[in-house]
């Protein structure tokens, strides 16, 4: 029934929010903090980068993140080889805050589409080292199946290129993945507006991950709220069981008692 808890479960951990949000591209830390709060996200992605040695006064991201409230999902953004991605994950884990990782191994600079071969190589190593691996991958059931077989905690097929705002470009691929994969399926990348997120959830996805859609919106705080509602609405709609699509009409009002 609608009041029952409908938690998203990843690697045995339960999350109330099915919206995962990135921490990049905000106008300020304050805006980021507010957007994350309003979004209701519990899992947030972060990147791993060199400390700025020369500018010690620079504020640090974690100065603004309540680690009791959020689960960090370090990403391997910018990695083009399995070796680089694995190295980044090991560093992220050594920073001591999470062994969840968003595994990205890119194949192309313009599209930022994954290099599936290197992705699978990295996933195998990382799963063996005990990481909880959430791979950003192509919307391809074969790759998803291989990632599942390797022991990844979820699969995260893209909706469209990162930051493109094109939405779910191939909902049929996502549906095929959902029908054939047992671990959580989280659409990651390409969401542009709230209806995109709702569509992903209505297809049956377990969650949606986005960054640019919120941070790049004209009003990120308003968009964060829209996304929160969209993910909830999409999930409710999916669970409510939509009507079938029909070619012809089916009147909602009775014929009986019509005025002659």
């Amino acid at each position: 029934m609608s009041t029952q808890r409908d938690a998203m479960v990843i690697a045995g951990r339960e999350f109330n929010s099915r919206l995962m949000v990135g921490t990049g591209k905000y106008a300020s830390f304050q805006q980021m903090v507010q957007a994350l709060e309003v979004s209701g996200a519990e899992i947030i992605t972060v990147a791993v980068r060199r400390v700025n040695i020369s500018d010690r006064n620079k504020e640090s991201l974690l100065d603004h993140i309540d680690l009791k409230k959020y689960t960090l999902l370090p990403n391997t953004a910018g990695c083009y080889t399995a070796d680089d991605a694995v190295r980044t994950c090991r560093l992220a884990r050594e920073a001591g805050l999470s062994d969840f990782v968003k595994l990205e191994v890119l194949g192309d600079e313009k599209t930022l589409f994954p290099d599936n071969e290197e992705l699978l190589k990295a996933a195998k190593i990382l799963v063996a080292e005990g990481f909880t691996v959430l791979p950003y991958c192509s919307d391809d059931v074969t790759v998803c199946r291989k990632l599942e077989d390797l022991g990844c905690a979820a699969v995260m097929p893209l909706g469209a290129p990162i930051g493109s705002g094109l939405g779910i470009r191939n909902p049929y691929n996502i549906r095929i993945i959902l029908e054939n994969i047992k671990i959580p399926v989280i659409v990651d990348a390409g969401v542009g507006c709230a209806s995109d997120a709702a569509i992903a959830m209505e297809l049956g996805c377990d969650g949606v991950l986005m960054n640019t859609a919120i941070a790049g919106a004209q009003d990120p705080i308003a968009m964060a709220r829209a996304m929160k509602l969209a993910v909830e609405a999409g999930r409710l709609s999916y669970k409510a069981g939509r009507i079938p699509r029909k070619l012809y009409a089916n009147a909602s009002s009775p014929i009986e008692g019509l005025l002659a």
């Binding site: 990135g22 921490t23 990049g24 591209k25 905000y26 980021m32 992605t45 972060v46 990147a47 791993v48 980068r49 060199r50 400390v51 040695i53 640090s60 991201l61 974690l62 960090l72 370090p74 990403n75 953004a77 560093l91 992220a92 920073a95 805050l97 990162i162 930051g163 986005m210 960054n211 640019t212």
Partner: peptide, 10 residues
């Protein structure tokens, strides 16, 4: 030597 930390990212 590489010294890294977490920054904003998607």
């Amino acid at each position: 030597i590489e010294i890294v930390h977490f920054v904003g990212g998607g």
